[in-house]
Design a protein around this nucleic acid. Structure first.
Lengths: 266, 266
DNA sequence: AGAAGGCCGTGATTAGAGTCACTGCAAAGA
DNA sequence: TCTTTGCAGTGACTCTAATCACGGCCTTCT
């Protein structure tokens, strides 16, 4: 089996070639991190929902030939801001935090990436340095494609190039959204409200209530909305007191979405 | 001559078909706004420097066939945030302000676009709504391509799709940069310093001094760095007093770049 | 020439939120 | 089992920058 556990600095990789030729038929592998490896993109149960994965079959096969899959534990780093772009990572499972930091240690989180997204895309297509740092916050499987391979692939596959453009468009859209919560708010409370509403838009609503999963520390939330850990704690307590929220471990229930929206509208 | 001055709400357009067939040979046209129209992209003196304009000749011709050129005066609006994307605007000359606003009137400027950029690209490729508003701040010529024409064109021209991806990557990069100045600063002074340094990176440096052109009102600068008009005024005065800057009308000289950089480093 | 509307400069006031310092708690590790 | 470490909660203090409220100076109309 073409698999190999590599330890490389603080980067852990469980590598398996994905060209299909040497796969254990149908059998799934487990990584040391309790993650089930997806060996074959065509067989991935989520393929259809995912913009980039749902390419025509020949393209997926061509891509598989230049792809190497790896599993990363919590805390691993896919790439670091300022590093010349090596290539892209297609997220198969898990979650990755994208952030940027200033010289004095302040950090701004731009996005928590979900499966199906392609990381490192902007820097790879423009041939510049990664503008963000990608840290794994949940055990993750990602397919890596080197920059040169990827660009050659795009030249041959017009359809894929378009998908790349679409993915970039969506990434941009998300960045603008983030920008709005940070830049257009008058108070930290407004920022937090904006953030929660934005976050909750991925979950189903029911009678003005939304049940969301928020596996982020207060510190991380603060870094997402450009605020401090303490004010996030205080504001969440405040929202709870005002019956806007209910917190149970890492799940959070928005009890009064309308009230949050009115905070945003100022 | 296939030209036509249209008044359409508060949008002014001086339309001229660019398919090459009906051009006045070599002669340039003037718009009512004192703008010299570029009739032919292949003959554009700036073509080489511009990512998207510098496509292979057949592609440029194919693009010209589906392009309509228009001139816009200061104050015109190319598109509005929230509007379903109609298509893209390739900026030939002039400058356009890209901004987003909140319900209570607060505005955040994301970017001042320069010639060669393609506006409305993210929304057009993903088929969503424009996420920003594009206002002309200097008489502008722009080539419009409708969304469907543009997507068809991209399907046929792999090279162009790649350029689109690159352009999107750069746009994203700029957005991140903006994000850093707004999100990672500890004070308004730091934001302003970051902004000035970022802005000055397009101009040549000489012995720690940079001469830059900043045709923005204090209000607009405030909207770029997420601050208020008054603090921008005060901070600029402060920087002048400290010999960091010198202002002469709309040109601004950074006298002490190192000092600005040390403000940023905190 | 006069009026009007933008834009810039400045003072006074004040609320909001960052920072520091400490406690308590719970999970992880030795 | 005991320690260690990381996260959450809270009080007190400080200070930045938003806001309001002017006055003056342009440019641009009428």
């Amino acid at each position: 089996m073409p698999s190999d556990l590599i330890r490389n600095g603080n980067r852990f990789q469980f590598v398996t070639k994905l060209d299909g030729s040497a796969l254990p038929d149908g059998s799934n592998m487990r990584t040391p991190y309790g993650l089930e490896i997806i060996e074959n993109c065509l067989a991935c149960p989520h393929r259809e929902e995912r913009l980039f994965c749902n390419l025509p079959e020949p393209s997926v096969k061509a891509l598989a030939a230049i792809t190497s899959s790896a599993a990363y534990p919590k805390g691993a780093t896919l790439f670091v801001e300022g590093q010349p772009a090596r290539g892209v990572f297609v997220l198969c499972s898990g979650r990755v935090k994208l952030s940027t930091s200033s010289a004095d240690g302040k950090t701004l989180i731009l996005r928590i990436s979900e499966p199906g997204e392609v990381l490192g895309l902007p820097a790879s297509v423009t041939g510049t340095c990664y503008e963000l740092t990608a840290d794994v916050i949940e055990p993750t499987q990602a397919n890596f494609v080197s920059r040169t391979d990827f660009l050659n692939f795009l030249k041959e596959n017009g359809e894929a190039a378009l998908r790349v453009a679409q993915q970039l468009g969506e990434t941009y859209h998300a960045a603008i959204s983030e920008m709005r919560t940070i830049g257009l708010s008058h108070s930290a409370g407004e920022k937090l409200a904006r953030f929660l509403l934005e976050w909750s838009s991925n979950y189903p609503e029911e009678k003005g209530q939304v049940r969301i999963k928020l596996t982020l520390t207060h510190e991380e939330i603060a870094q997402m909305i450009g605020s401090s850990r303490e004010t996030v704690t205080r504001l969440l307590a405040d929202f709870r007191k005002k019956q806007l929220l209910q917190v149970m471990g890492s799940t959070l229930i928005i009890k009064n979405k309308a009230a949050l929206e009115s905070i945003v509208k100022g």
